[in-house]
Simulated scan of single mutants.
Amino acid sequence: MTASARAGSPPPAAPVRRRAFAPLEPISASARTMLGLGFFVLFVVVWGIATLGGFVSPTFLASPITMVKEGWLLFTEYGFIGDIGMTVWRVFGGFLLAAVIAVPLGVAMGTWKTVEAFFEPFVSFCRYLPASAFIPLLILWAGLGEMQKLLVIFIGSFFQIVLMVAVTVGGARRDLVEAAYTLGANSRGIVARVLIPGAAPGIAETLRLVLGWAWTYVIVAELIGSSSGIGHMITDSQALLNTGQIIFGIIVIGVIGLLSDFAFKALNRRLFAWAAL
């Protein structure tokens, strides 16, 4: 028995062992990266076994090697970089157009209950309407040009942003609002100095999430009446039963979307570093 035990003092605490699968237990950044890459490697291995092993017909699913070859041909012979540029322009053009209008409206709905009562039923109604259902009308109204494709993305993004921003702003802490009133702030000051700064990280996160949805709308817009873009390439490849090019186009969309998501996250952390504290 040690002297500390004889004196009645408690024994030293045992070191805490972190369990990888404990609920809400954090993991290191390196472990997160390795696990994420590990899934992609496993996916490609299973895909290769299924296709190169002859378990799936090449007509229905190209192998990873064939997909890479077809992707190289797209870049070197078919000007695929131009299709990528057009798709990126459509996504960000329609998304920015939606965000510029939807964010102020969402802030107003979250701030003033009268504004919310006026707009919320209609916005909620439109939120459930699929953007693809508007394509025939948009073709009649705007033709087959770029405006029609931008409007598809606008419709698919606008109503989601409005409601999510309104919920974020409306969830502000009442004690902060009351404290601002006590310090002499007026209604404009409450909005500018309490509600908007407090909701800004949540608004930025909302925009990041909806940007991911915008990528799904652009392909739908490009499947009909388009002469350029990744969706147009996928449609042409489908007519030729070229599954290698179809898969490559899908993967390119995923890669660009993932990169934009990482960029959005990094920008949010830089702009709202205090929100993570």
Rank of each mutant, 00 (worst) to 15 (best):
G82H: 12
I65P: 07
T59Y: 01
S57I: 11
G94E: 10
E77K: 14
L97V: 06
L150S: 01
F92Q: 11
K69N: 14
W89R: 14
V107H: 04
A131F: 07
Y78E: 13
E120C: 03
G156I: 09
F80I: 12
I65Q: 09
L61I: 09
L138R: 03
A62P: 08
K149S: 02
A142P: 12
G145I: 07
I161K: 02
G53E: 01
S124E: 08
A62G: 04
L150I: 05
A108P: 01
G48A: 15
V152N: 00
G145E: 10
I81W: 12
M67Q: 07
P104V: 08
G85M: 05
G143S: 06
F75Y: 15
F55T: 08
S57L: 04
P121E: 02
P64S: 00
E120Y: 12
G79E: 12
E77W: 06
Y78G: 01
A131Q: 06
E70A: 15
V103E: 03
L140V: 12
E146G: 04
R90D: 14
A131S: 13
P58M: 00
I155T: 15
G110H: 07
F134D: 12
T111S: 07
I101T: 14
L74G: 08
T59A: 10
S132P: 02
I135V: 14
A108S: 06
L138M: 08
G145H: 03
I65Y: 06
F92I: 13
A142D: 09
T87A: 10
K113G: 15
F60Y: 15
T76R: 08
P58N: 09
P58V: 12
A99S: 10
T59G: 05
F122S: 15
F134K: 09
G110S: 07
P136R: 04
G106R: 03
F119Y: 15
T114R: 09
L150F: 03
T76S: 11
A117P: 05
F158D: 02
L97A: 13
I139F: 00
A62K: 01
G85H: 09
L150Y: 05
F55W: 11
L144Q: 10
A98V: 06
G156L: 10
G156P: 14
I139W: 01
A102H: 05
